[in-house]
Write a protein that binds this DNA or RNA. Structure first.
Lengths: 242, 242
DNA sequence: AGTGATCGCATCATCCTACAACTTGGAGGT
DNA sequence: ACCTCCAAGTTGTAGGATGATGCGATCACT
């Protein structure tokens, strides 16, 4: 037993539809983020990993390359790959597994923090061009009567355009990212549990936001956005505190 | 000439220290995010990319694998890799190039939104264990008299622990990520322009935050955090509006 | 001629082998 | 004790081979 028992029980692969490198990367990533590999320690060599996972070294390389790109490990030629401290990460990634129950509530809370402030800033700074694009998204939503793919898309655009109206590219990126993740996880639950999510309700809330933005009223925009998010969260079974 | 002139001038590589796959991925990523490749269109085949960049197909594969992991392209076996709409991205990545001037101000604004709210939540929810860890970071900072590596590290821990005290894992991740990116970009400017950034100033601001958290006073915690961030931004030459 | 099944082709996914570049550590000589 | 050189181990890169997959063209049958 030369390996110091890293604890690699090969983890029977649950035959997911993902590609091999993605699976390997996901497993390693989970081990690292769970602290099962302690920062500073060295990963097994690529050859050993290949043997452990039962894949070729090329597949392992793609997986490790992704970990390196995310800043989870530091691969040094001729030495090995070392686990980095978690705060060194270079990319934020949210996998669906983290959104079960409590995770979704937390993500909604983060979303609310960003979007309420985004609404406030958009009301204060949004140009006519911005407002027109927000209005266009609203109109697209108005056309549909059921809450399905088309209107959900328009909803995302609506929120993204508000974030863009802040003039802050990072706010736009982060809000868009979070909304997209929430949408992705909702789609599954929705098919099973078709909550009464009438367009009228949503439209009323959206109209209030838009009116506040048009009126350049930051306080009202923030309040309207908060009310909308509380409602949206409730509609997917999440209670948004505060 | 079968290739419909994607416009691939091979882009002479500026001999950076990065690895080959990283360089290829960065080039492709830039093309995509700049819109030079229009969503929906197909990338050249891996063989052609390998020939264009003058590298092996393996290198291209690692690069494309990373793009796919980030949600920038969708690679379908036997067909090709297609560029996705920008909002479909699965990871947030901030490269240093985006932080020149205006970028840094925008990132600070985003940071302020998150951290002021985080301070408020931490004051309301933080447990004794959380507060102790925040205090420990503060003590570590107090030991140093110059603002250098050690105290900067402690500063990061201080902010991260406050985010952790919200009990929201996503807030912790996002705040930590943003602080780390700002730190990385500051380090360079700092070496050239050693702004008067005395520890006492920083400590005073931090003490105010800590006192507010101890007192479980959300409003004061938020105000103290805002004051600190305005000061921190000013010290690196960024004016934080509002 | 129209329709359906079949085949071939382009492409990605995976695997394999080999070599280059780099680091480490020890053998051996000075 | 110190320096030099070399051998082993590891990651980085190259190139090819093979299987899997999706698409279009061809071909046979009606």
């Amino acid at each position: 037993m030369s390996a110091p028992s890293h604890g690699w029980p090969t983890e029977e692969t649950p035959l997911s539809a993902e590609l091999l490198p993605d699976r390997v990367a996901a497993m390693l990533s989970r081990r690292i983020s769970e602290g099962a590999i302690a920062p500073g320690t060295r990963l097994p060599t690529e050859q050993k990993l290949a043997a452990l996972f039962g894949v070729s070294r090329n597949v392992v390389r793609e997986a490790v390359a992704r970990l390196r790109a995310d800043g989870l490990v530091d691969a040094r030629q001729g030495v090995g790959s070392f686990v980095l401290a978690p705060e060194r990460r270079l990319a934020i990634r949210i996998d669906a597994a983290a959104l079960g129950g409590e995770g979704m509530a937390q993500l909604f809370e983060l979303r609310a923090i960003l979007e309420t402030e985004a609404a406030r800033l958009a009301a204060a700074r949004g140009t006519e061009a911005h407002l027109e694009r927000i209005g266009a998204a609203l109109e697209r939503m108005r056309g549909e009567e059921r809450w399905e793919e088309g209107s959900i898309d328009a909803d995302l655009v609506f929120h993204r355009e508000i974030a863009a109206a802040t003039g802050n590219a990072f706010i736009e990126t982060f809000v868009s990212f979070i909304c997209e993740r929430i949408r992705g996880s909702i789609r599954h639950a929705r098919a099973i549990n078709p909550i009464a999510d009438l367009v009228e309700v949503n439209l009323g809330e959206h109209d209030r936001i838009y009116a506040a933005l048009r009126a350049a009223a930051p306080d009202e925009a923030e309040a309207a956005m908060r009310a909308h998010l509380v409602g949206a969260a409730a509609r997917v079974g999440v209670i948004l505190k505060r």
